[in-house]
Simulated scan of single mutants.
Amino acid sequence: MIDLRALARDGRSVQRTVPVKSLGRLIDSLLEPVGTVTFEFQGECDDEGKLYVDLRVQGDLVLQCQRCLEALVWPCSVRNRLLLLRAGEELPEDELENDEVDALEVEPQTDLLALVEDEVLLALPLVPRHENCEPPVKADGNEEISPFAVLRQLRGKV
């Protein structure tokens, strides 16, 4: 737990490397919870007193290809700029149109791992697939007959 507002106000940074298996909610989206994820929070206070953190997350995650069902090593690379707001504080008017910054309400103490996990979960591909792979085939070599082919045969007999 850390005070992100103080980190930003002081212009400090925090960097850590954690095992993938320590990110409990992420594990459900992975084929294998192996390897590590490295993250860095770099704080900044601008001339207007607005507090920001730049978040970077790097690591290789093992997903399941949805085409061939084999392991797919996906290079996770997240970069996000977060405007830190107090609970209940409204987003400043000048930030409403800024797509390069996300606003984040923070409590006095923030769980960095939970925030990293949220960002990685949002970055995961909806349908992970290798660029070139084939769907799995039956081990006995017989191709499965499409249900539409069966319907086509039945329709022809009527």
Rank of each mutant, 00 (worst) to 15 (best):
M1A: 09
I2V: 15
I2F: 06
D3H: 10
R5H: 08
A6P: 05
L7G: 02
G11E: 13
R12L: 11
R12D: 13
V14H: 07
R16M: 05
T17C: 03
V18E: 14
V18C: 09
P19H: 00
P19R: 02
V20M: 06
V20D: 05
K21M: 12
S22G: 09
L23E: 04
L23A: 01
R25L: 14
L26C: 08
I27F: 03
I27V: 15
D28W: 07
E32L: 09
E32G: 08
P33V: 03
P33S: 01
P33W: 00
P33R: 02
V34P: 01
G35P: 08
G35I: 03
T36D: 14
V37I: 00
V37F: 02
F39H: 11
F41M: 01
F41P: 03
Q42L: 11
Q42G: 00
Q42H: 00
Q42I: 05
G43I: 02
D46C: 06
D46K: 07
D47W: 13
E48N: 03
E48L: 13
G49V: 09
G49P: 04
G49W: 00
K50D: 07
L51Q: 04
D54K: 02
D54G: 07
L55D: 03
R56A: 05
R56Y: 08
V57H: 14
V57R: 12
Q58T: 09
G59K: 02
L61S: 01
C65F: 07
C65A: 13
Q66A: 00
Q66S: 02
Q66M: 04
R67I: 07
E70R: 12
A71V: 11
A71S: 15
A71D: 09
A71H: 04
L72H: 07
V73C: 06
C76D: 07
S77K: 11
S77A: 06
V78T: 12
R79M: 06
R79W: 06
R81Q: 11
L83I: 13
L84D: 01
L85N: 08
L85I: 10
L85S: 03
R86Y: 03
R86N: 12
E89D: 05
E89H: 07
L96Q: 15
L96K: 15
E97G: 08
N98H: 06
E100Q: 10
A103E: 10
A103G: 14
L104P: 13
L104T: 08
E105H: 09
E105V: 00
V106L: 01
V106H: 00
P108G: 01
P108W: 11
T110P: 01
L112Q: 02
L112K: 02
L113Q: 08
L113E: 03
A114H: 06
V116F: 00
E117N: 01
D118R: 10
D118G: 10
V120Y: 01
L121G: 02
L122P: 10
A123C: 15
L124N: 11
L124R: 08
L126E: 10
L126V: 13
R129N: 00
H130V: 03
C133I: 14
E134I: 07
P136V: 12
P136S: 05
V137E: 13
K138W: 07
A139S: 06
A139L: 11
G141F: 04
E143G: 10
E144G: 10
I145Q: 11
S146D: 15
P147M: 02
P147F: 00
A149C: 05
V150I: 09
Q153D: 14
G156K: 10
G156N: 12
K157C: 02
